[in-house]
Design a protein around this nucleic acid. Structure first.
Length: 603
RNA sequence: GUCCCCGUAGUUCAAUGGAUAGAACAAGGCUCUCCUAAAGCUUAGAUGCAGGUUCGACUCCUGCCGGGGACGCCA
């Protein structure tokens, strides 16, 4: 089966006229750290310090307001290099630093930090810049957009999707959203396992154990049950196992009956998967599963042999990596098995090739479990030997463990199914709504429960570092309090309630913001930092940093909200506070959107 | 045996080599006349062990201990 026709035209390169148009109409405001870095560099040049290649002074937020808003360690770094006392050097840098229209006089602290405090007048102007940029919330797009294929989710067809599948799906989707937001051209590709060994079991089961009546009513559930049943049988009975293998061989040889059954089950699974993806608000541009590359595998293998990348070994065709320190003593990469069938290494190499030739990918990202790291090291190595220069990025994630602290596996025991997890999440959310907002219309209760339940599950996954292993726990996945999606969603509701109260009145944000209260200034500064946080997410592919930021933003907002009454204030104060509310609403909404988490409507 | 990832409060998690290691949950104490309680304020509580590099180490290096994982015909 070809999941979809390959009609991917590379869009025409942006014309010069277009670029000018963009440049004129979208004036991107540099972030405060960018500005400070630039001026620090100027200052360093001015005082005649020889800078190492590609050196750029690091400017980071301080961890305590008493140190100002931003700090740099450049005097300590260069002090060592030039054998100068860091504090003396810091003083020289400050003397040469152009602080006009940006910061208060910088201060030297501790072993040689230079601390900067953004002038409040500048911060005030910045708020109105942000107001003019509703779509991007101040974020500058990537300077050189790339074509990025992102490979994530990739479940096996006809096996139940359990909670272990959630990480790749949710992290991958979020990374795709973030990359798109930064103007990269992203192609999401669901490389489903639609050709593997499990089809032998499905075929055998279909012919010998299919419960027709159940199948009519609930085809997807019946398919999953079928897989489980045959899997259990095959484990106990070697003749069943052999029969399954025979069915698979027949399928791969093109047996019409088996092909027909295969196609039917793949289509059914596709539908079942889509129900979950719809619920998760995850979508794919492509569904090029393993089966899409069958035809290429024999010639690819020949090519690898010809190019001396792979060779025969114990009847199989394998790639060895004698020159690679870590790969040399590991098992080889098996391209073709002894029985003549192809391993997933072959498919994955063909897939890389296809993504580069047809999709013109500059980068390919794989959001796949950490246990597969050896496999990807190997196929990336093979790809490089084939002359592929695109950036191949393995974005691993840690395992979800059972209560025995072992990895969840479909074959052993029964990890909770993804569908059940989502249903439970929505049920719990619904119960709380029933308790707290009994007067809502039933329909609204349902939609809010869906939004909150699904959001909670997604956030639980996204808010921790992707490499951390964790033991699956209902309470963890379904937490609704504290650092969770419902808290952030609730913050949106809270800020939007102000605009609701305004009714039809157009909010007056004034022409000139005045930040008086500390909570106002803190919130304003935090809002400006969205533009710092988002582009950095693609450096380490860690959406949890965005979660951290949004949580901090929500907290700063709550502090502001407690201390600074909006609607009862007047004049500049009221306008400034309304402005802060507007920007908070937008930034929270945009941030949650980048995580793939839905947000309540404004009205 | 080789290689990879992870060891942080009672628990679950944070922390681009930066200053006093942040949260949440659980525990104790407060706060609903408000644009607000899926909330806010508050008290207590942690870097596995031993070295090393550094002005500075949860972070980098070495060794050990503990957990998980990969290592030829599953994907």
């Amino acid at each position: 089966m070809r999941a979809s026709p390959l009609v991917h035209e590379r869009p025409a390169p942006t014309s010069i006229a277009n670029r000018l148009f963009l440049a004129v109409n979208l004036i991107y405001v540099p972030t405060f750290p960018n500005k400070i870095t630039q001026r620090l560099t100027d200052a360093l040049v001015k005082i005649g310090i020889e800078l190492p290649d590609k050196f750029s002074p690091a400017v980071s937020p301080t961890n305590d307001p008493k140190f100002g808003d931003y700090q740099t360690n450049v005097a300590m770094v260069l002090g060592k290099r030039t054998k100068t006392n860091p504090r003396d050097l810091a003083q020289h840098i400050i003397d040469a630093f152009d602080q006009d229209d940006l910061t208060n006089p910088p201060e030297i602290a501790g072993p040689g930090f230079i601390n900067f405090r953004i002038r409040t007048s500048i911060l005030q102007l910045h708020l109105h810049d942000l107001l003019k940029d509703p779509d991007r919330c101040g974020v500058t797009p990537a300077p050189s957009p790339e074509r990025i294929v992102i490979d994530f989710s990739a479940p096996n067809v006809a096996k139940p999707m359990h909670v272990g599948h959630i990480r790749s799906t949710i992290i991958g989707d979020s990374l795709a959203r973030i990359a798109r937001f930064l103007d990269h051209r992203v192609i999401t590709d669901n490389h489903i396992g639609d050709w593997g060994k499990q089809f032998g079991m499905i075929l055998y089961g279909w012919k010998n154990h299919l419960d027709k009546s159940t199948f009519e009513n609930e085809p997807i559930g019946a398919l999953v049950a079928l897989y489980k049943k045959v899997n259990a049988l095959a484990k106990e009975d070697e003749t069943v196992n052999a029969a399954c293998k025979d069915e698979l061989v027949k399928l791969q040889a093109g047996d019409p009956e088996n092909l027909a059954i295969w196609k039917k089950t793949v289509d059914l699974s596709h539908k079942g998967l889509n129900t979950i993806y719809t619920r998760l608000d995850v979508s794919f541009d492509e569904w090029l599963g393993e089966s899409a590359y069958n035809e290429r595998l024999p010639s690819l293998t020949e090519e690898l042999i010809e190019k001396l990348i792979a060779r025969e070994s114990d009847g199989a065709i394998c790639a060895f990596f004698p020159d690679d320190e870590t790969l040399a003593d590991k098992a080889p990469c098996i391209v073709r098995k002894t029985d003549g069938s192809f391993g997933y290494a072959a498919t994955d190499i063909a897939t890389i090739e296809h993504r580069i030739n047809e999709f013109k990918a500059d980068e390919i990202w794989y959001v796949v479990g950490a246990p597969q790291s050896l496999h990807f090291d190997q196929i990336f190595n093979v790809a490089r030997q084939m002359g592929i220069t695109a950036e191949l990025v393995f974005i691993p994630f840690g395992s979800i463990l059972g209560t025995d602290r072992k990895m969840l596996r479909t074959r052993e025991g029964d990890p909770p199914q993804l569908d059940d997890l989502l249903t439970e999440a929505v049920t719990r959310a619904r119960a709380i709504i029933e308790e707290k907002n009994p007067d809502l219309p039933e329909e609204e209760k349902d939609s809010v429960a869906e939004m909150i339940g699904i959001g909670a599950v997604k956030y639980a996954e996204l808010s921790q570092h992707r490499l951390t292993d964790y033991v699956f726990s209902w309470d963890k996945m379904l937490a609704l309090q504290g650092n969770t999606a419902p808290y952030l969603q609730y913050s949106c509701v809270r800020v939007n309630s102000i605009f609701r109260k305004l009714g039809d009145t157009t909010p007056d944000f004034g022409n000139q913001a005045i930040l008086d209260a500390p909570a106002e200034r803190t919130l304003a500064l935090k809002l400006s930092r969205f533009a710092e946080v988002v582009p950095a997410l693609l450096k380490d592919h860690s959406p949890n940093h965005l979660c951290n930021y949004l949580y901090e933003l929500a907290r700063d907002f709550h502090a502001f909200f407690e201390n600074c009454h909006v609607l009862t204030s007047e004049g500049h104060t009221r306008a400034t506070r309304l402005l802060l509310c507007e920007l908070t609403s937008r930034t929270l909404t945009k941030g949650l959107h980048l995580l793939g988490i839905q947000v309540p409507n404004r009205m």
